[in-house]
């Protein structure tokens, strides 16, 4: 019983996710600032580390405005559901060697659970845009749907490739079955996964649904205070979950070169975060129709070819 409460409240539950949110917010700001030739957060806490904590608590104490024209239930309920749905996949991901099989819920359908739970999220975000009853929010909601429909196909297909190669959907087994050779075989899949991941997480160059120069702040436009914090919390949790999924599926999770530990996983996630920030710092946004064209005429065919390649490798290279 104590164990369950610990898992819900501390690790890998609430406290861990909050700590991650503070960390990744600070980390992205600091790295981006370096690339921008700025200083970034500086005054609060050592090297500005407390700045994001202050920001979050400032938002929590702000008035939670529900505009007159919105649908009040949709508008206020979705920000409660979104972080929960975003945090659910956490139970499926193997975090550390000292839990049984590394996961909270040990299941044979880890990959399936992961992609389904990640795939539900955008529909909730669409509903925030729909409930805001604002032209810009609504356009943001429509854009998120269009982007998800086109990006989830290659995302799912890429996530399928390790499951096919190792013949299991159990994330822990996939992690331990991975070796140097299979990592190489899965590399095309990993690249497709990470590109599709940028689209799913609305990261540059696919930050189309909340393109502030075009549609103000997309589906976030009407949100403020606590609701805004909850939505942002969901966004950062999703970043954690999806990058952890990428590491687990393709780069053998928490296994390190010399020892297995949570910190190996953390380091790999941080590396992915650095790549994401570097892309953000050097690339402008794509247009919606260009993104659709890219997804459907390049990413989807390539991810199907990737499945063919994985099956071929399984039959003739690994000789199963």
């Amino acid at each position: 019983m104590n164990n369950i409460i610990f898992q819900i409240l501390v690790f890998p539950g609430l406290l861990f996710l909050l700590g991650w949110t503070f960390f990744v917010f600070y980390f992205a700001r600091k790295v981006l600032a370096r690339i921008h030739k700025r200083v970034g957060p500086h005054f609060n806490g050592p090297a500005g580390t407390l700045q994001t904590v202050y920001d979050v608590f400032k938002l929590l104490t702000k008035e939670n405005i529900t505009p007159k024209s919105v649908d009040p239930y949709l508008f206020n309920v979705i920000p409660l559901i979104t972080p929960i749905v975003a945090a659910l996949p956490v139970v499926l991901i193997p975090w550390t060697p000292w839990m049984h099989n590394g996961v909270v819920v040990d299941t044979q359908y880890g990959v399936l659970g992961l992609v389904v739970l990640i795939g539900v999220e955008p529909f909730l975000l669409f509903l925030t845009g729909f409930g805001s009853n604002n032209k810009y929010s609504f356009l943001g909601g429509m854009r998120i749907l269009a982007q998800m429909l086109s990006m989830e196909t290659p995302f799912f297909l890429a996530a399928l490739s390790p499951a096919i190669l190792f013949g299991t959907m159990n994330l822990h087994d996939i992690m331990y079955a991975n070796n140097w050779l299979t990592t190489l075989i899965l590399l095309p899949g990993a690249i497709i996964f990470i590109i599709a991941m940028l689209g799913i997480l609305e990261q540059p160059p696919f930050h189309i649904p909340d393109a502030e120069q075009e549609i103000v702040y997309g589906f976030y436009t009407e949100y403020s205070g606590t609701n805004y914090v909850l939505l942002k919390f969901a966004e950062f949790t999703e970043i954690l979950v999806v990058s952890a999924a990428a590491v687990t599926l393709f780069f053998s999770g928490y296994r390190g070169l010399f020892f297995d530990s949570f910190w190996c996983l953390f380091l790999k996630i941080a590396l992915i975060a650095v790549v994401m920030v570097a892309i953000r710092a050097s690339n402008p946004r794509l247009r919606l129709d260009q993104m659709l064209k890219f997804a459907w005429s390049w990413l989807v065919p390539l991810s199907i070819l990737n499945i063919v390649w994985v099956i071929f490798a399984k039959l003739y290279i690994l000789g199963a």
């Binding site: 921008h36 160059p205 393109a211 502030e212 120069q213 402008p284 946004r285």
Partner: peptide, 8 residues
Amino acid sequence: FGNAGLHT
């Protein structure tokens, strides 16, 4: 570039 979503 700021208008294209890149502030670097």
